[in-house]
Amino acid sequence: MNLETLIEEGEKVKASNTKQSSRGGSYISGEEYEKWIAKSIIFLEDNEEEFSSFLIEKFKRASEQAVGNSVRHYNTMIGILKALHETE
Rank of each mutant, 00 (worst) to 15 (best):
S21T: 07
A66C: 11
T87H: 05
K39N: 15
W36G: 02
I37N: 00
L6Q: 05
S40Q: 06
A15K: 15
G68M: 14
E45I: 00
R61Y: 06
S16I: 13
S26I: 15
V71K: 08
S40F: 05
M77Y: 05
L44Q: 04
E49T: 15
R61L: 06
R61F: 05
G30F: 07
E34S: 09
E11K: 15
H85T: 03
G79L: 06
E34V: 07
S52R: 02
E8Q: 14
G25Q: 08
E4H: 12
R23K: 12
E31I: 07
I56P: 07
T76A: 09
Y33W: 11
Y27Q: 08
A66H: 04
A38F: 10
K58T: 04
Q65R: 14
K60C: 03
S53D: 08
A83Y: 13
K19F: 12
A83I: 05
V13C: 11
K58Y: 05
K12V: 15
E8H: 10
E57Y: 05
Q20M: 10
F51Y: 09
L84M: 06
F43N: 10
K82L: 10
I56D: 04
R72L: 09
K19D: 02
K39C: 12
K35G: 08
H85I: 05
N69I: 09
E50F: 10
I37T: 01
G10Y: 03
E49A: 14
E86K: 02
Y33F: 15
V67H: 14
G79Y: 06
A38W: 11
S40H: 00
E32G: 11
K39I: 07
S52P: 03
I56N: 01
V13A: 10
G25D: 11
E31P: 05
K58C: 08
L6N: 03
L6S: 02
S40G: 13
G30P: 10
G10M: 11
E11T: 13
N17I: 10
Y33M: 02
E49S: 15
T18H: 09
A62M: 03
N2V: 12
K39V: 10
A38P: 07
E86R: 03
T87R: 04
E48R: 10
Q65V: 13
G68W: 11
K19L: 13
S63L: 00
A62F: 01
R23A: 07
